[in-house]
Design a protein around this nucleic acid. Structure first.
Lengths: 215, 215
DNA sequence: TAGATTGTTAATCGATTAACAATC
DNA sequence: TAGATTGTTAATCGATTAACAATC
């Protein structure tokens, strides 16, 4: 039924719907029309209906969408009804910050281990997790059914680690390093290139200043 | 000359070009054709030429593009030839991690201050910066020509702080909080919604598993 | 039943790719 | 000059929006 290939443009919008529906649900709102949701989220009602219909009809004519039901369904589509074990590779500032961030747990993402090759850092505790040496990476992944590896280390290291990961049973890499990784198709990669994001911001600051200067 | 409105799709690709060109330059590569760059970056040569031509002709027929020149030009387009002072609001794990990250400085983004309202955290040092109380935010922004505010605090706080920021001379917000901010057009907002990114990853893991199960 | 609002088809818009003339 | 490769126009593709019949 839901076999058509869904475009990544649609996928990228799902978490935002999920966020808004969660807030509506918490406020006790029971139902919402695409029209009302559209003015709340500043997107067109048409897009909302198209997006939801990629996954089958979640609404009801004349009524709209049941907030709580829709929230749950989108959660399922996003796979948030499952548990995912993850490890963090690179226990520097960013790695430790992500390790300490508890909200991922709420969504079913469970931190199982952290790795680093700096003797200074190995053995340190982040919550109840000990930072382990890189040698133990592969065996730990196998033994603990790890799905996701979070890469928070410098460029060169990231490329190398990605190659090691490609040989394990890992399913996905959440990549914070400033490189594009080259891994088999079976491993999903999601990049968070913070400096790219900052550069976009920088561009837009400049653009706005120029526009003002001109008009 | 470069007055046409450039689409955000193009802008989003610029940092990636910049990254590849920087690496080529560091490797001593002097020139590159759109064809060669295209196979390196796994995009079409046509797209590369279209993208660059949004900003005027950077290449030369029969020759290609001068790597170092193109790198500099894209840097300028992104506004990386200027200095931007920034503050971090929310000195939790993520805020401190970003504060400690030195690479932003290399691109002209200079950390000037950090703020929090938790007495536990106020006064702590991150590099040479003292975490200040929230009361001092507005005056500090005025006195130190702050361009960018990085928001690394919980939802509710973020919305409130964004309102306060809207009344200052700030130019941009780099928003790590899981809310959409409502600020005047004159303030550029770039969102880094980490949990959205993680959900996308989760979706793609699931999708791949389903595809495998079927075929 | 009448009114509301979805699900879905058709129209539009924008972004990507292909093709090729211009030119170094 | 001949070959290479850009800059740019035209064609295609995909995503968004509009419109409306289906239906609760």
């Amino acid at each position: 039924m839901e076999e058509r290939e869904i475009s990544q443009a649609v996928i990228s919008r799902l978490p935002r719907y999920f966020r808004y529906l969660g807030e509506l649900r918490d406020e006790g709102v029971e139902r919402i029309s695409s029209q009302d949701l559209s003015s709340l989220m500043h997107v067109t009602a048409s897009q909302i209906r198209q997006d939801f219909n990629n996954f089958g009809g979640f609404g009801q004519q004349g009524y709209g969408y049941n907030v709580s039901y829709l929230y749950d369904e989108i959660g399922k589509i996003l796979g948030l009804d499952r548990k995912h074990n993850f490890v963090i590779i690179g226990a520097g500032n960013l790695g430790r910050a992500l390790g300490n961030y508890m909200n991922f747990e709420r969504r079913g993402f469970i931190l199982r281990g952290m790795f680093d090759n700096d003797p200074e850092v190995i053995g340190r505790r982040v919550r109840e997790i000990n930072v382990m040496p890189m040698e133990e990476l592969e065996s730990f992944i196998e033994d603990n059914e790890i799905d996701i590896a979070v890469l928070t280390l410098p460029k060169a290291g990231a490329r190398h680690v990605a190659e090691r990961l490609a040989k394990t049973g890992i399913r996905a890499i959440w990549n914070f390093a400033h490189v594009d990784l080259n891994v088999p198709e079976s491993i999903q990669v999601e990049n968070v290139h913070l400096s790219d994001s900052l550069m976009k911001l920088s561009y837009n600051i400049n653009r706005y200043m120029k526009e003002q200067g001109k008009t």
